[in-house]
Design a protein around this nucleic acid. Structure first.
Lengths: 231, 231, 231, 231
DNA sequence: CATGAATGAGGATTCATTCAT
DNA sequence: AATGAATGAATCCTCATTCAT
């Protein structure tokens, strides 16, 4: 198991002393990602947040409420980033590189948050799970549209657009499971490697220099950075 | 436990009525895949297997033992398939197509079993988790070697071999999450699409006809079929 | 507070060694009567029944299920007794004496059971509370009919039949709160006194000898005895 | 706590807007009566009083303190009413009618307050419960004395004086459970019906006109009205 | 006067597991 | 081979209450 990657957040240093609520959410994100929702006890959660377990209930409704909040929050950040990117109306190859940049950067930097979104939806009850799936669908729609556009323009050639979208998303999500920001592989290289693989998978030309150019053109990392820094 | 029971959705219909043991393993595979290990209660398990919860303990040791056996069994099948394939010493492009064929077919056909392997390792205690990880590593080693060989021979061009291996494996594992054998997408097309995307991601030439030829050359599905049918 | 009266059951000695289930129900009846449903903890309940608190859940569903079972059981016994009595088609004065005999005897002898029925209905959720109220209404209908008949025949003269029914029932239920079977007041005298008061309240002639005769005619105690002895 | 707050449904409309304290007591009376002491949470109490739950602790000491104050206050009002009535030294039949008038009117008009006194004493700890029981005994002593006197004078003929006292009190208390001031049954008729039944139960002559005369003679409702209106 | 934060004890219930039958 | 009874530990969550602000 590649759990080392879960460490997460240290990238953006935070000056303000963490409020109790923040500490709870952080603890929850970490534990839900590491052990899973059902394997995380309310007492561990409290302990990790440095408070008594009953105090949790001043801040979260239910344990499940807390999960849902986390899922919702992280999903919305990704959606917002994709929205900002696609608003630029780049060509499909640049657009897909931008999406990869956002996705991979987010999954590498906020691996715990994204792992929760990717793995713990099934712990939600039906209405919330459906709400979470709708959010995920809204996010994936940005990918769909870009793939469609690229195929329509002849930039991409894929056997099946849906399979392609699912495949490249899955590939890029994988980094949350193994990438460690403290290792020697840089985020930049990680992103570039994925962009190159994605372009290849989509049947687009994928020369290393072209990829570099497309990533520069997309310049999506600032977007990702921004959406994850907002309160 | 006769490990034949793990097969799940039987491709080749089996005349023999399921033994109690088989039913337990089937129920476990289904529930662990659907809800996760920790969210699966021993009583649900028993109910789904059509027996009393105490009776479970004649067949499985612990709930965790049961998980471990499932993980071990499924992992070994994949390993055995990959072993048989690589024993043929195909050229890297054909070999990688064969691996994709095995992996995708297995994840599509035995989605519950593979999902358990992919998602529930963290529920195992340390020694068992490490044993399971060793099995996974043995399996992935076949992929590593093939990627290495392809890169060495110039068939593949990737920015980072480890990232490539992880990326394509992740992509191919994804099918367990969404593919439905009862839908209109055929297994053959599913496999072909993935082979094509994987070749692309690896920077190999990925003309559709070439892919078809490589898949025919690899002819790995019979292997997969066989390893999953064994007792 | 007159809690001494709650002791209850010892009247009918029981040869068979109490099963776990019986012990649970007895403990519940006693505690629900003494302290009330909400003031009775599941652990006290278990302790009084001589078992571990988790074992309770093999026998009762929920604590509330247990309450409902007790309410239902006791209500049905009273209904059955009243049914058997009214089947004799006595004259209203004798019939009302019989009802008093059943009611007072039951409330004196099974004070815990009847106290639970009388006081703890509000702890039930809506559907069960309504079911319990329906049972109570079925029981009180026997009283209504008898009062009506007596008024129609001129045996009784009351300002308002509904008030009368409620008043005399309430009066007779009171014994569960204070009567102690181990005190010096005999059940026979207790019943006779209430019969006399009820007849008076209903405006019927209430000479002591008449009351004695009516009670003999009704001869309802064997009925009460019987319905409470059934399993 | 200014005890005026306990009044509840104000017969005489009060101009002054309810103080926080009054609202707390009103909420407590209502909830303790409806659901019982143990089923009433401190937070519901606060919500119903329109304040934060911590604020409660400025007004009540403990939840149990609050219950005790309510019990004490209501008990004292009844005692005071009975004292004023018996100070008139009426003949036993008129006196008993006056007591019924007070008791029934109070239980009908202040059903929540009286229900709390009648049902929730067991939630008090021993010293307070005993204090509450002493108050109840002081109240019931007025009834005892009147019954005794009536029996001594030959106005009443009862098989057992204690049983008689308990029976008629119980009968009259019942109205708190079912009477609705907004229904079509008037308080006057309710009281008259009970007076008539009580006289009958005591073996006194109970002609309707006599009852009316006795009630007029007792003229106790103004007393009840007054004691419940005092601050 | 009023409150939000905080807590320890305890609420009911379910957990995986054992064992005698 | 199979089960019903039993349990201790743990589950999530709510309780009444305190206190600094």
């Amino acid at each position: 198991m590649r759990s080392a990657a879960i460490a997460g957040r240290q990238t953006v240093p935070e000056a303000a002393p963490a409020t109790t609520e923040e500490q709870i959410v952080r603890a929850a994100v970490r534990l839900f990602a590491e052990r899973g929702f059902h394997a995380t006890g309310i007492r561990q959660l409290a302990e990790q947040a440095g408070i008594n377990s009953s105090t949790l209930y001043h801040y979260m409704g239910t344990k499940e409420d807390l999960l849902f909040r986390i899922v919702q929050d992280s999903s919305k950040r990704l959606i917002e980033a994709a929205r900002q990117l696609t608003a630029r109306e780049l060509d499909p190859p640049a657009a897909i590189c931008g999406l990869v940049q956002i996705h991979v950067w987010s999954h590498a930097t906020y691996s715990a948050e994204t792992a929760v979104v990717d793995n713990e939806l099934r712990a939600l009850d039906k209405p919330r799970r459906e709400a979470a799936v709708r959010l995920r669908d809204r996010y994936e729609a940005f990918w769909s549209k870009t793939v469609e556009a690229g195929c329509a323009r002849g930039d991409f050639r894929v056997p099946d657009r849906r399979i392609a979208r699912l495949g490249i998303l899955q590939m890029c999500s994988g980094v949350a499971q193994w990438y460690s920001p403290s290792g020697k592989l840089s985020l930049r290289d990680l992103v570039a490697a994925h962009a190159q693989m994605v372009l290849g998978a989509l049947g687009a030309s994928r020369d290393r220099d072209q990829v570099r150019t497309l990533l520069l053109e997309a310049d999506a990392q600032p977007i990702a950075d921004r959406v994850w820094s907002q309160p």
